[in-house]
């Protein structure tokens, strides 16, 4: 079987611009004054990462802060382009939006309006949103708050609406970036159950988390990143072990 996502020797460089000139004014002055000239430094945020994800697989991504986990997700979604290497989808899979809770939500709009706004940003038509709308309301348990502007929501309610929407967008590949830090325990459990259900349906999940337990229980494979390099790929429990060793050193 073809892999769903093929990450082939991908590197991503960012330019750190010291003394950054991001205006015409300072670029112009820089011609005459050395002090206003920018100097560039290249930072390799990801180095030669090769990884393939099989359909229906649940892959965990772990690593310290700034090890390149979120950048890898963004490369998969297509927000960033790799500097070297390629990200391929041999089956032509449609990768769902990265789950970041409440992207595109507008504080002045009501919960209902935000569901429509958020979903259309992810490319759903009006009809499609109307179809998923009851599911979103049911999952978020915010039935009586859908006509309240979300600026009046508590942060937990905000996150619940965001997760409920994200999970109902029904992507083929679910990319989940650190989202279980929110909501009370009951809601967290519900999220995990929903993800289990997704896995049962044979959907591919890529999962970024710092929670060792969740990775161990939930993922079939885990991938450990450190300073942009892939350090370990394999059994979750082994990856967590390696990760803890990294943290200790």
């Amino acid at each position: 079987m073809f892999p769903l996502i093929e990450i082939d020797n991908v590197s991503k460089a960012f330019t750190i611009r010291h003394n950054r000139t991001n205006s015409l004014k300072s670029s112009f002055i820089g011609i005459f004054h050395k002090r206003f000239r920018e100097t560039k430094e290249t930072l390799w945020a990801l180095k030669n990462v090769t990884l393939s994800v099989a359909p229906g697989e649940t892959l965990g991504l772990i690593g310290r802060n700034g090890s390149g986990k979120s950048i890898l997700l963004r490369l998969i979604v297509g927000i960033y382009r790799p500097t070297q290497g390629q990200v391929r989808f041999p089956n032509g899979a449609r990768v769902g939006a990265m789950i970041e809770l409440g992207v595109g939500f507008h504080p002045e709009l009501t919960g209902r309006e935000n569901v429509f706004l958020g979903a259309s940003i992810h490319g759903l038509s009006r009809g499609e949103v109307e179809e998923i709308y009851p599911g979103v309301v049911e999952f978020s348990e915010l039935d009586s708050f859908m006509d309240v502007p979300i600026k009046n929501y508590s942060s937990g309610m905000h996150a619940r609406l965001g997760f409920a929407l994200a999970i109902n967008l029904n992507p083929q590949v679910l990319l989940v970036d650190e989202i279980f830090a929110v909501g009370d325990e009951a809601f967290q459990r519900k999220c995990i159950e929903k993800m289990e259900e997704f896995r049962g349906e044979g959907k591919t999940i890529i999962f970024v988390s710092h929670a060792a337990e969740t990775i161990k229980n939930f993922c079939e494979r885990a991938c450990l990143l450190d300073h942009g390099s892939l350090v370990f790929l394999g059994a979750p429990s082994k990856a967590i072990e390696e990760y803890h060793r990294l943290l200790a050193s």
């Binding site: 979604v77 939006a97 970041e100 992810h122």
Partner: peptide, 9 residues
């Protein structure tokens, strides 16, 4: 910018 950095569109 916030949107462009988080969602592909």
């Amino acid at each position: 910018g916030g949107l462009i950095r988080k969602v592909w569109l």
